[in-house]
């Protein structure tokens, strides 16, 4: 993964987002939402800039980013894989499916493959318990997953 570079365009984008929320520290969560939507993640340099624009300590910004699981400091892959570990999926063996994704991609939870293609995350229930165990790749839902199907799912994205 190339090192994050806070170039002028990105910087201006962040400044604009802060501005659109009146540079108010009380709007920090909305600002973080907006910036992550724009950049995909929130590296340290970005949080420092946001703290400066909103006149608040960067420790408090980091406190919020590290608290909410929605926010991430790691860039996601082009095809983010989310494995549901909610109750229904869990009892149907989603932990084994997670292990298989980790094994085949050679990365852990919260990490991204070196070609930036895939990243793995876990989540708790997507409201499709009838299809358990469930895996999401981007917005696409794969129901009734099995360990054997992991290879096929990854293969679908091989040439993309």
């Amino acid at each position: 993964m190339a090192k994050f570079e806070l170039n002028t365009t990105k910087k201006q984008k962040i400044i604009d987002i802060c501005e659109s929320f009146g540079n108010k520290s009380s709007e920090v969560i909305n600002v973080l939402h907006g910036v992550q939507g724009e950049l995909g993640y929130l590296p340290a340099e970005v949080q420092e800039l946001i703290a400066e624009r909103l006149h608040m300590p960067v420790s408090q910004v980091y406190g919020i980013v590290s608290f909410y699981s929605f926010f991430t400091m790691e860039p996601k892959g082009k095809y983010p894989i989310s494995i549901c570990l909610g109750t229904a999926c869990h009892v149907r063996g989603s932990d084994k499916i997670l292990e298989e994704f980790k094994r085949q991609l050679g990365i852990g939870v919260g990490q991204t493959t070196s070609d930036d293609k895939f990243s793995i995350d876990c989540l708790r229930c997507v409201g499709a318990c009838g299809l358990a165990p469930v895996v999401l790749v981007g917005d696409r839902v794969y129901g009734r997953m099995t360990v054997d199907k992991v290879k096929d799912v990854l293969a679908e994205y091989a040439d993309k």
Binding site: M56, P57, V58, S59, Q60, Y62, G63, S66, F67, S69
Partner: peptide
């Protein structure tokens, strides 16, 4: 750190 001293070095993190 934040209210008395307005230094802001410390914050609650993680969950």
């Amino acid at each position: 750190c934040n209210k008395l001293q307005t230094v802001g070095a410390l914050s609650g993190i993680n969950r």
